[in-house]
Design a protein around this nucleic acid. Sequence first.
DNA 1: AAAAATAAACTGGTCTGACCACTGTGAGCG
DNA 2: CGCTCACAGTGGTCAGACCAGTTTATTTTT
Lengths: 207, 207
Amino acid sequence: MNSPQNNTKVYIGIVKQLRSMIEHDGLKPGDRLPSERELSERLGVGRSSVREALRALELLGLIETRRGEGTFMRDFRGHQLVQLLSTFILQDKKSIRDVKETKFLIELDCLWLIIQKAGEDRLLRFKKWTLEADYTDDDFFLEIVTLADNHLFLRIWIILKDYYNSLDLEKMMITKQQYAELIDTLISRKDSEVIRVYKELRNLSKD
Amino acid sequence: MNSPQNNTKVYIGIVKQLRSMIEHDGLKPGDRLPSERELSERLGVGRSSVREALRALELLGLIETRRGEGTFMRDFRGHQLVQLLSTFILQDKKSIRDVKETKFLIELDCLWLIIQKAGEDRLLRFKKWTLEADYTDDDFFLEIVTLADNHLFLRIWIILKDYYNSLDLEKMMITKQQYAELIDTLISRKDSEVIRVYKELRNLSKD
DNA sequence: AAAAATAAACTGGTCTGACCACTGTGAGCG
DNA sequence: CGCTCACAGTGGTCAGACCAGTTTATTTTT
């Protein structure tokens, strides 16, 4: 039947079913899922099990429920979960250090990837935007990570960014000139220069 | 009563209660939580609501339940989250290229971290093991990533490794001498040399 | 006929009670 | 002393009931 194996919990199976259902039907953020009772009947399980699965996905921020209306796909970037986990887990100092360390290194990786891959015209346009537009540090590096053209790094970075922001660390001021300088080094394609400028920008010089 | 506000869902309140309970009682990984029925009674809510909260936390990897025994705190240093989200991220089975690229760069990151952090004695011991023991490429780099002492990278790498292996790509032969040489460069702490040797080892020279 | 009020049919939210499967324990027997 | 076995406790699951909202259809009123 629907159950994958016997010793797996029902609600886990439902999560999987839902995932494949979402993929199969191509559900996008905002779309409605079947009602709890319908899922219950369709999958041949109790409604409470369906609810356990849905509640878990809700806490993860993947879906949203509105009483009287239904359950909907959500445009998830993790905030729900990030907030929860950060207060839940990230208390210990080492985890915080890991998050910072990982975020920085992935940003460096992406810079390196850009050197390898990005076209010069794209970089020049980016530099122009850097000097003219208004943006935050997250905005800037989101563009960096996007330019690196690695979907995996992009997803991981976004998660780390949210974590990082939830830590409420003091942030340093970075001038447009600094951002622009970083892009210059990208255009010149000098690895070592990129690393130096990035470290300076992140104030990691002494490390 | 126990409920924080009236319009918040009960299971959310329970999650919060659990969090403060964990903090207050100083529960550590491996410790047991009160049973579902006891929580239900103590918090004045239905058992199904307790279960919705527990199931959500379980899916998050924060707790673990064993039928007949109870519910236990889990060792979640490494963010189950990454693993969970990975099933969603890797869902779009986009480019194999991304997986390879990311795995390699993270391995490089870890090498870099080792240069910064690892003690020489540890590296010497590692080199000895490299020359004497029997191991696979995965074994070797698992040790590398572990030495980097970044739990986040460790978890991400493990996922990538598993995915990478599932791709069934042809693998090249790597001699013990090559592995040992890599460690030598780590001991000498020359960044550029490490990169060169690693690339050679992964046959990325032309790239 | 149009608008407003009402009713019905859904949706999620919660609780209760029941039963199953599994684990640990302790009483009782050999 | 060691074994067996029943029992209490725990999570796993289901069914049913009721509440509280929303939407839609129906009826009533204007």
